[in-house]
Design a protein around this nucleic acid. Structure first.
Length: 573
DNA sequence: GCCGTTTTCGGCCCGACTGTTTTCAGTCG
């Protein structure tokens, strides 16, 4: 079993943490963290890259030394340098650094002075009042540590984007009513449309003397105030979500928006470009000495740095800055490009609405086509259809199409991929469909090679068209199954099959990095909602967000095509 | 340890807030 990128990144992060606690060279430490970030964000695993002869030192933040360490990890599963450090400094201290408010210096002091090695040790020491006696610590810090160690122990995972939307909307509406407010924007990973958000970053410009901070802190949902300043405050809501509010002057709005949209690594890269030109970039603007060169709009800031404006979804420092410099950024797919939805369910299986209602709802959204993809028989929990029932549904769709104006219902089925890679319904029935959407619903625990073979074998069937929710993951509740996705993508491309970007907020499967890999391989994707009711057709925007984060252009997406072209693309040779 | 529109050495992003402080270290984003 190859070592996962996340595991390799974890080793480097731990090495960085422990060296940080020991007071090591901060630049070397940063180099390890940068490398970890690069490794974690790659879609292809390191073992595979090494096998194919790739020179890892070509990757950003990875040089000769770290490339060699990665090779060692892939070959032996171990990082000797980390083990050496761990012989001096307990590995568990790295976990303590994850507690909010504890950085390397405090962890070091707590360990050296009180022999604290775990959250449990920490809680005990805080309760008995030992921490306040340490130099540099005090009563308040001790209280804070106690609070945060408890929160850490029952830590909430990052919140899914739609849940964050539900919280952000009323808060923004509330703040908007504050006298003197001019502009209000939710920035951060929310604006970058990440699948989950850790906190909300709200940016405001307001007239002098506007009571926006007071009003923010007085919001009904606020459970606690973490910090409060004139330009920045942080609160925790009852939902557990942290919210930052930043107030900036109008002339700084663009620079601040840039700054608070991030990502962090994107910002750092921008500031480095600034420095190389003799400028200083911060949330108030781009400056040469004390003179503000730009700041009112994002466009101004990017301009002065010699870059084209970059879409928020691309700001992850994954190569977008270099393309912006060359003026060669991709024109990302948007909602206006979408002509239809290729995955939806009706009340014939586990959907809530009838065929007619789904058709009408799709037409109301301006679509040319909607595919009905009710489950196949093996998925009994969803009342999957057998051959006879599916043929009956096909007849109903034909009848409906004869009546419908302005939209075509495509006949399809979400066909279960059985354990041996065969499809759940006979080819003779599947051939009656316009196309199929095929997926794994059982036996997620197959070893990687068996799961990969299972899916590729299914693709060998000429009735196979689109692989739905390709990894089966559910955000915050179920890990992706083990599968060699690059191999699956290559196989799909060779056979004229496609992969789905499932837009259900809990799935968003493919991830952004796999979207990018598909694009790099020249494999088109379908952005599909998997709607189980008419309102879920609006999940399309989450799928589009994911696709945009994966650099997809309209041309990379199957359902941006008109019906005729779609049919041509789906035809297998 | 990485990296190069000051390129193989000498740099390495920037500011706000808090708490424990008499001028600043630590942490965070």
């Amino acid at each position: 079993m190859p070592v996962h990128n996340a595991e390799i990144a974890g080793l480097f992060n731990r090495l960085a943490d422990l060296l940080d606690i020991e007071g090591g060279n901060p630049f070397r430490i940063r180099a390890y963290r940068n490398a970890a970030r690069t490794i974690a964000s790659l879609a292809q695993n390191m073992a595979g890259l090494l096998e194919s002869g790739k020179d890892l030192s070509e990757l950003p933040g990875i040089g000769k030394a770290i490339a060699e360490k990665i090779q060692t990890i892939v070959e032996t599963g171990r990082l000797p340098q980390l083990e050496e450090v761990e012989s001096r400094t307990p590995a568990a201290l790295s976990d303590l650094m994850k507690i909010e408010g504890l950085g390397p210096k405090r962890v070091k002091t707590l360990y050296r002075q009180l022999n604290i090695r775990s959250p449990e040790d920490l809680e005990r020491a805080a309760r008995s009042g030992k921490i306040r006696e340490l130099e540099g610590f005090g009563r308040k810090t001790e209280e804070l540590i106690l609070q945060r160690v408890r929160r850490f122990q029952g830590e909430a995972p990052r919140m899914r984007l739609p849940d964050a939307e539900d919280i952000a909307e009323p808060l923004v509406a509330y703040l908007k009513k504050t006298p003197g407010i001019k502009v209000i924007t939710v920035a951060g990973s929310f604006r970058r449309r990440r699948e989950t958000v850790g906190d909300l970053d709200i940016l405001v410009t307001a007239r002098k003397g506007s009571p926006v901070m007071d009003r923010f802190i007085a919001y009904d949902e606020v459970a606690g105030v973490v910090s409060r300043g004139n330009t920045r405050s942080t609160v925790i809501l009852h939902s557990g979500l942290h919210v930052d509010l930043r107030v900036v002057p109008q002339v700084s709005y663009g620079a601040a928006l840039c700054y608070f949209t991030g990502s962090r690594t994107h910002n750092i890269a921008l500031r480095k470009i600034g420095v190389s030109k003799g400028y200083r970039l911060n949330e108030y603007g781009l400056f040469r000495d004390e003179k503000r060169l730009a700041g009112k709009t994002e466009q101004e800031v990017y301009d002065k740095l010699g870059l084209a404006w970059i879409e928020p979804e691309l700001r992850e420092n994954r190569g977008e800055i270099e393309l912006a410099r060359k003026g060669r950024l991709p024109r990302l797919v948007s909602r206006a490009d979408i002509r239809g939805d290729l995955h939806s369910h009706t009340s014939a299986t586990d959907g809530r609405n009838s065929l007619g209602e789904m058709a009408e709802a799709a037409r109301a959204r301006g679509y040319q086509y909607l595919a009905i993809t009710d489950h196949s028989r093996h998925v009994s929990v969803a009342h999957g259809l057998n051959s006879k029932q599916l043929l009956e549904e096909i007849k109903q769709i034909d009848k409906l199409n004869a009546k419908l104006d302005g939209i075509v219902i495509l006949k399809s089925c979400e066909v279960d991929i059985l354990d041996d890679g065969s499809l759940d319904l006979p080819d003779s029935v599947l051939r009656e469909l316009d196309f199929t959407v095929c997926a794994v619903h059982y036996n997620f625990n197959f070893p990687e090679n068996k799961q990969t073979e299972r899916i590729i074998r299914a693709m060998d069937n000429p009735c196979f068209n689109i692989l739905a929710h390709p990894t089966g993951r559910l955000i915050n509740s179920r890990e992706a199954y083990e599968v060699d996705l690059p191999a699956v993508m290559t196989a799909a491309k060779e056979r004229g099959c496609f992969l789905e970007i499932n837009a259900q907020p809990a799935r968003l499967d493919l991830t952004d990095t796999y979207c990018k890999l598909a694009r790099d391989l020249g494999l088109k994707a379908a952005i599909s909602t998997d709607a189980h009711s008419i309102d879920q057709l609006d999940f399309m925007r989450f799928g589009i967000g994911q696709a945009r984060r994966g650099w997809l252009r309209a041309g990379d997406v199957l359902n941006t095509r008109g019906l005729d072209e779609l049919r041509t693309l789906l035809r297998r040779n």
